[in-house]
């Protein structure tokens, strides 16, 4: 089996069997991180560039660790220390990096569609590490893996994604991912954070927190993305927290073995109360652990096979 594509740009274009392949491969990779010597020679001599135009701790570190555990050489470029500050365009930066013959470029950018644009210029695989409010495919894959591990399957489960849906690439990738994998997805948040027409992606939308919580097997809390909100979308953090923050009182309406996810970074006391974030239902740190395995699987499946045919569709 192989992925039917050169790049990983989003979950939207993946077929269910490709998602399943990524997840089963990631399950096998988890074992490598449990070893005393956490390294396999699989991608020896390959070079992976992490090109990050936005702040990141988890995702960047996770991609870097994944590359290193497979013996690839990982190079991190963050915009603040690059020639971007000297006025170089994204395309020029990418073409120059490609001239150094990397085997894969992982990119995060605040503009939706950046990875797709780069994938047209670059012969090497491009992995989307989050683009604007569009997609964050590796996050959705690690969320799927985390839920699948706990519940055995994602078929028929109910998941509610709660928070700033409008600005969330995590929400979009997860709506695609979980619906493709047979789950029932509900998105919830204040009306200002629910994009009109979101139901077209195959999910239900509600402004009622209680409705989102009741009956759900999984609750995914999202961070308020103040950096993407041109104007504030709610009157005050306190009000948001009171209405849509997950705390002990609201959790009483939930199933008793509900699972709680959060892509991080968490804002304690805003969208999730500290006792819940650290509580027994929280899988937040399992998500982080699974993130490394998922990214190893992405590299394995994108870089593992022969390179023939990759030149097609490349316009320099």
């Amino acid at each position: 089996m192989r992925l039917k594509r050169k790049d990983l740009l989003g979950i939207e274009e993946l077929e269910r069997d490709e998602i399943e392949l990524l997840l089963s491969t990631a399950e096998s990779f988890k074992e490598v991180s449990e070893r005393e010597i956490k390294k396999v020679p699989t991608l020896r001599g390959r070079t992976i560039i992490n090109l990050f135009y936005e702040a990141s701790t988890r995702t960047r570190t996770s991609f870097e660790i994944a590359a290193k555990r497979m013996s690839a050489d990982a190079i991190n470029i963050s915009v603040s220390t690059s020639s971007v500050v000297k006025g170089e365009t994204l395309r020029d930066t990418a073409k120059n990096l490609e001239a150094m013959r990397p085997d894969c470029i992982v990119v995060r950018h605040s503009s939706s569609g950046t990875p797709r644009m780069l994938s047209r210029y670059l012969a090497c695989p491009v992995v989307n590490a989050g683009d604007g409010a569009h997609e964050h495919p590796s996050q959705a894959l690690l969320d799927l893996l985390t839920v699948k591990e706990k519940l055995g399957s994602t078929d028929g489960i109910k998941i509610s994604i709660i928070g700033d849906i409008t600005h969330s690439r995590v929400a979009r990738s997860n709506i695609y991912g979980f619906t493709k994998m047979g789950a029932e997805v509900t998105v919830a948040g204040p009306p200002t954070m629910l994009p009109p027409g979101i139901e077209k992606l195959g999910c239900r939308a509600t402004t009622s927190m209680e409705e989102a919580i009741r009956g759900a097997d999984v609750l995914m809390m999202l961070r308020i993305q103040s950096e993407r909100q041109a104007e504030p979308l709610f009157p005050s953090v306190r009000e948001y927290s009171r209405l849509y923050g997950l705390d002990e009182a609201k959790l009483r309406a939930a199933k008793k073995d509900v699972l709680i996810l959060h892509p991080g970074p968490i804002n304690r006391g805003v969208e999730i109360s500290p006792d819940i974030a650290d509580g027994p239902y929280s899988l937040i740190l399992d998500q982080v652990t699974n993130g490394v395995a998922v990214r190893m699987a992405i590299f394995y499946l994108l870089l593992g096979g022969v390179k023939e045919g990759l030149q097609e569709g490349v316009k320099a």
Binding site: M1, R2, L21, S24, T25, S28, F29, E31, V32, V40, P41, T42, M70, Y300, L301, G304, G305, V306, K307
Partner: peptide, 22 residues
């Protein structure tokens, strides 16, 4: 003991061999 990650033909075969359990 799964040998997949240590194979010498990963860049040669068209399909990546699927990982088994270690």
């Amino acid at each position: 003991v799964d040998a997949t990650l240590y194979r010498d033909d990963l860049g040669i075969k068209k399909d990546q061999p699927s990982l088994k359990k270690m």
